[in-house]
């Protein structure tokens, strides 16, 4: 049913899988995610759809190996099947012509950013992408992001590639040189928090795509709940994208460590 057709290593710990999923490929839009499960004892984990090909009936998932489930997924090979795959889930990204859009992504957060940059680009926006990672080896999808970006700024913590510095340094440089109409940020919660604090300072509207703990992904449990503007929201059905300036990132960071 959900057979793996292609597998590529994007870096030491990051794997890209092309999976047979015709219905999801047809229905999905930028910003949507899936829940998948590997093995009879597997847990349900959320992953954003990085690419989809409706004609071929496939979706592409990019997975960083961080724990038990991602290890199981990364160990799968071409021809293997996912035990369960359901989607597309969540609300699609709100796409319109904003003007200049900065896509600020860190590490494996580039994968969910890819379809958003593509859609923003197609809607006529000027897309400036800031790609950030700890070091050169962890920069992924640079070629693909360049396809949909008017400019790509690469930042590494150790300066091993592009400029030395954090994602916020790259974003701030853009904001200081030109008017930015929207910033979209996806990456580790701490990174999104600091991007949000920065853009708030400059009054740049900012959307963050949140990656919380999930179980069902359909709104029936509330494991993914967060506070947005003082209200409790479920990331799986109300999100995953929210006004970053309204998100309580400290609470989200704390909740993301619940089972560590």
């Amino acid at each position: 049913m959900n057979k793996i057709l292609k597998k590529d290593a994007l870096s030491e710990n990051i794997v890209q899988l092309e999976v047979e999923a015709p219905l999801i490929a047809k229905a999905r839009k930028a910003g949507h995610f899936v829940i998948l499960r590997v093995g009879a004892q597997g847990e349900r984990i959320p992953l954003t759809i990085a690419k989809a090909d409706a004609q071929r009936g496939t979706i592409t998932l990019i997975i960083q190996q961080v724990g038990v489930s991602t290890r199981h997924i990364c160990a799968l090979n071409v021809g293997d099947e996912l035990t369960d795959l359901v989607g597309p889930l969540g609300k699609a990204t709100h796409i319109e012509k904003f003007g200049t859009v900065v896509c600020a992504c860190g590490g494996v957060g580039t994968a969910p950013m890819l379809p958003i940059a593509e859609a923003m680009h197609k809607a006529g926006n000027k897309v400036v992408t800031v790609l950030a990672a700890r070091n050169k080896d962890l920069i992924i999808l640079e070629r693909e992001m360049r396809q949909f970006s008017d400019e790509v700024i690469v930042m590494t913590d150790d300066g091993s590639y592009g400029q030395k510095g954090l994602v916020t340094n790259g974003v701030e440089a853009v904001i200081q040189r030109e008017k930015v109409d929207l910033c979209v940020t996806i990456g580790p919660p701490v990174m999104m928090k600091f991007v949000s604090l920065l853009t708030q300072k400059y009054n740049v509207p900012t959307v963050a795509s949140l990656n919380t703990i999930m179980v069902d992904g359909t709104g029936m449990c509330g494991a993914c709940r967060i506070s947005v503007g003082g209200q409790t929201k479920f990331v799986c059905v109300d999100g995953p994208e929210f006004d970053a300036h309204q998100v309580d990132f400290d609470e989200m960071i704390s909740r993301s460590k619940a089972y560590n």
């Binding site: 029936m220 449990c221 509330g222 709940r225 409790t232 609470e251 619940a258």
Partner: peptide, 20 residues
């Protein structure tokens, strides 16, 4: 869809819906 009471501290770790 689980109901919550919307009282302070409900989003602390260790507080969860019966559905979850």
């Amino acid at each position: 869809l689980p109901n919550f009471m919307h009282i302070p501290g409900e989003n602390l770790n260790g507080v969860l819906s019966s559905n979850e």
